[in-house]
Design a protein around this nucleic acid. Structure first.
Ligand code: FES
Ligand code: FES
Lengths: 145, 145
DNA sequence: ATCATAAAGGATAAAAGTATCCTTTATTAT
DNA sequence: ATAATAAAGGATACTTTTATCCTTTATGAT
């Protein structure tokens, strides 16, 4: 459903939000450790997320990744779009050159429903809410091996 | 959502069903052309589907791929399981070592709903029905470039 | 000013997924 | 029996994704 890169991205963004709730900036290394992803690779992913304004970053000592008011309306959908693009939302699930209502593939009409669910999943909760759920322990970003 | 290989597999199986409706066996080459997939690669995928008893095959002249009574309860879900495995159905969408209700990732409870939709999509219609829809032109397996 | 820190960027490398080609085996038609 | 056909299998190549490492740039602390 999501590329491995995108899974990392989702977890990273939620973790950044969680730390930003406490006003903390976090480094790529720490993020990688917290979400159980290789840190150099995590850093690469974060570069993309910063370019797409999903999160902010600051260089130098006391630097790191964070979110502020300017990111408050970003959702998981923006994360997915930034990393995996719009294939999941726009493309034909069977790989036809485009998804078309007039010339549908055998899965089209069911896929439309699935997509609607996925869209809801990725937009209904704010990243802040998701971060709070991790904060209070009701969900987790990593698990012991 | 599905690997490219799996997209090919789904289209191939539906096409085989379509031809079997008319009692015809079909070769890998023809299948590849009809579903717009490389034929040698299509042949490889078909080997897996045959091993998993999703379709049948017969060697030699007049040979080819087909389905009969023994395949009548196979669904698209079996195709996806044969090619992509159970990651889509059982795995954690965020890549945690396993999906767990007790220790859920932030997307878990929404993913459960999405999965239920996907499961329905892949099991509610028989492969025969899907083949008929392609047969009567209401859906398509390929489109002109 | 200098140094330490952390993100950004570039260059590779390793692994997985996708694709091609050639040989072997089973089956049919002659 | 022989030749032709088509799937099965094996080896190899190409591409994309995932991952690592090293250098450069920006910033803050001293
Ligand atoms: S045409 Fe295939 S999903 Fe719409
Ligand atoms: S724990 Fe992640 S999907 Fe269930």
């Amino acid at each position: 459903m999501f590329s491995k890169t995108c899974q990392y991205a989702i977890k990273a963004v939620i973790y950044i939000h969680k730390q930003s709730l406490e006003g903390k900036k976090v480094g790529a290394k720490e993020i990688g450790q917290e979400i159980d992803a290789p840190d150099a690779f995590t850093a690469k992913i974060l570069q993309v997320l910063v370019r797409q304004h999903v999160v902010g970053s600051f260089k130098g000592p006391t630097g790191g990744f964070y979110v502020d008011k300017s990111h408050e309306f970003k959702t998981l959908k923006d994360v997915v779009l930034a990393i995996d693009g719009d294939q999941l939302f726009q493309g034909c699930s069977l790989g036809l050159n485009q998804c078309s209502e007039q010339n549908p593939c055998p899965l089209h009409f069911e896929i439309v429903k699935v997509r609607s669910n996925i869209h809801y999943m990725l937009t209904s909760k704010s990243l802040k809410q998701l971060a709070e759920e991790v904060g209070d322990g009701s969900t987790v970003l990593a698990r012991l091996a």
